[in-house]
Design a protein around this nucleic acid. Sequence first.
DNA 1: TGGGGTTAT
DNA 2: ATAACCC
Length: 482
Amino acid sequence: EPEEEGGREEEVAVVRSMESADAEAAGGSEGAPSTEEGSGLPGSVHHEVVPTGSASSRVIVHVDLDCFYAQVEMISNLELKGKPLGVQQKYLVVTCNYEARKLGVKKLMSVRDAKEKCPQLVLVNGEDLTRYREMSYKVTELMEEFSPVVERLGFDENFVDITEMVEKRLQQLQSDERSSVTVSGHVYNDQSINLHDISHIRLLVGSQIAAEMREAIYNQLGLTGCAGVASNKLLAKLVSGIFKPNQQTVLLPESCQDLIHSLNHIKKMPGIGYKTTKRLEALGINSVRDLQTFSSKILEKEFGISVAQRIQKLSFGEDNSPVTPSGPPQSFSEEDSFKKCSSEAEAKKKIAELLASLLNRVCQDGRKPHTVRLIIRRYSSEKHYSRESRQCPIPSHVIQKLGTGNYDVMTPMVDILMKLFRNMVNVKMPFHLTLLSVCFCNLKALNTAKKGPIDYYLTPSLSTTKCSGKRSLKMKDTHMED
DNA sequence: TGGGGTTAT
DNA sequence: ATAACCC
């Protein structure tokens, strides 16, 4: 039977007539042609057990584009196709195409090592993410045409909950047609398919939808990628990586344990990161089975009940986290790293550059950020990865000017950011920074009150009267004299 | 290590 | 504001 949720969620299934099922299915989605008429024959009062999507067994697809940045670069410059290609950020090759991989180049390899391994390697600079970001959202939007429930993970991965789509297609099939459903792509472990098992049928239909998604991504955007189909996000993600470039794999429930035990270390488990791995290792936990069999009580004492229960469930392949629609981004940021920045003037110049790019992005988005944050990384010989940040509300008169193509907004924003800077960095003492980043967040839809294409004439008095009533809401941010 | 992102505390 | 996670 399905591996899901040992006892935590009740098995919810409802019995209803086809007529009511139709009514709900028709209301549930907009894009697909409505062809339910054929399934509920007028005479037959034919009741069926219909799993209710979210509470019971789900069908999730994870779509993972192949070496995404490299693919985007090859589309931009067709000369690059067929050559070993690396995408460079600073002195790192952050990703590379499969030609380069065959010659020994790995992701996140230093440019020096990569060139040494592969002198013919062609490098393109990928520090400006604009085109990657744009293509990334095109992929997400394409996935949203299949089902609106799409969750992004980075720029090159998407989860889609296709439970409803699968149920809809199943309802359209006559019962004799169900036993002729076929898989698209690979089946993990070459496990045998049981067409009498409804969970198998549902996953096979899922594999067909996944194939259609990959086809659409290729035909409409020219990108290839992998897909994994399983009953939850964790398993879909793990199984998508089994056959690697441009292929797909479905996981049937009987092979779930094999999949998770194929991970040779718990650090390979999505959701268990660097820190947690270190702490687990300190407890003598190294393998997935170690984590499965470890005392829950002790685990809870070490990590708190929330983390402990979550990661231990992951070790069994259980993951009840929903596919959360990402929607538009929650924040926009631009960062730059460097060997050394040690003067205020230098910092100001870099901050202004970051800000200029961000203003363009915010302008395109249409929404208005209400908070701005400055992030720094200080040089330190070892003390691992520490960033510091300061944030504050963006004054309402500045918010109003955002997105008007008015570069008057630069001056007040740079002034704000430099105040944040001096709040973090004592500029009277020597300092050494290796990164600066500016982030706009707390995005809100524009004020529809009064707009029109010309905000240029908006006066300070008008904007202050408009917003004076809302001030008390967000005063948890750093206060700055204005 | 890059240049991004998210959620939880 | 930071810390953890993801790519």
